[in-house]
Design a protein around this nucleic acid. Structure first.
Lengths: 203, 203
DNA sequence: ATATAATTTAACCAAATGGTTAACAAAAGT
DNA sequence: ACTTTTGTTAACCATTTGGTTAAATTATAT
């Protein structure tokens, strides 16, 4: 199945931990489970990472570090609104397609400890939603798009990107589709979401 | 704080259990915690509901029984497409506003045991998405709305209804809004989502 | 070669957790 | 009045879990 040959012990642990944490959350993850999946003794976990919390923090940072800096970059980008929408939606879906279970994991942890995790997630610079909001306001005033509350527009965009992953099993159940079909659908969404939004707000 | 006076013991347990389960999930919930919140002994929990699983099942059914029958009803309703969209979005948001943490809870449990929970959730009659999909197809063929994949349209609608609740703490963090502001925003979404969708697909 | 440091393990520990038991108290029949 | 059923509790139990310890093995340096 998986090649674990030339990985260092630390790498083996991190790979196993990521799987277990993302699947079960912080509280639900078992150190023994991580050790087993990494093919090592449980005590060795504590040798490399002092505690469950510490290990979790490493995984959490690593898992989210790909996504949020990009969000921040795109939100503050100077390109036209429609391009921001296109770029954000396609990039978001593309990145998350690599880790489909990440969003539910992040939302869960942030839900359990909003402030602690917002700190871990954003540090001190949260994604500049206000910049995007201002840009939307401007376009409305210039009469380039239909009037809409910027906050709602942003939430709509975020919703259509994030929810399909969070609700993946439910969607698969309701629509009776397998892994491949789901993946194909998400590939389509890379462009479809932006088209859908723009069709709604374009004058 | 809360009035627990004229409640029967069973009601006290159910109220406490709902809170604890929804906040922590099946695995994260503690029987002792439920007992404490209900102001009773832990053994009494097992006297009323034999096990954690049994208690959970009761809570789960009670919590979801309000929502899904309505979804099914609206999906199979014979009214025009735009009315379905308006009715579904407004009703969904309205119902969930009473239990804002329900969606994340349900998605989590369904994620952990897709088949077991789909059984508990839907029994043998899943929401008839196909009926709605067929209706969309027809409207497209009749040239009444722009062409769009029915599956994607449904996912978009679902996304904009569900995600704001699932992502509530994250949205509150990113947009820096309090409980009341969030609630007001969701009130607005009762009509806004449908307007947004219809604007996008209307010819 | 051998002393030193880094890595790995088996055995153990204390705390937490779901669940049980046996005894006690309160209601409800009779 | 008293017997039976229902409701409630404290104490207890087995298992699980995160974490520790001390010994063993392997690598590194001298």
């Amino acid at each position: 199945m998986v090649k674990k040959k030339d990985q260092t012990t630390e790498e083996k642990i991190l790979a196993a931990a990521k799987k277990v944490f993302v699947e079960n959350g912080l509280a639900g993850a078992r150190m023994q489970d991580i050790a087993d999946k990494a093919g090592i003794n449980k005590a060795l976990l504590h040798y490399y990472f002092r505690s469950k919390e510490k290990l979790f923090e490493v995984i959490f940072k690593e898992a989210t570090s790909k996504l949020f800096p990009r969000v921040t970059a795109i939100f503050s980008s100077d390109i036209p609104l429609f391009d921001i929408i296109r770029q954000f939606t396609s990039e978001y879906v593309e990145i998350v397609l690599e880790n489909p279970y990440l969003p539910l994991f992040v939302l869960n942890e942030i839900n359990k400890q909003p402030h602690a995790f917002s700190q871990k997630l954003f540090g001190n610079n949260r994604p500049p939603v206000h910049k995007l909001a201002e840009k939307i306001e401007k376009e409305i005033k210039k009469g380039l798009i239909k009037p809409i509350s910027p906050a709602h527009l942003i939430i709509n965009m975020l919703s259509m990107c994030v929810f399909p992953f969070v609700g993946k099993p439910m969607i698969q159940l309701m629509m009776n589709i397998d892994e491949l079909q789901f993946r194909n659908m998400m590939e389509q969404r890379k462009t479809l979401i932006a088209d859908f939004i723009i069709a709604s707000i374009k004058k």
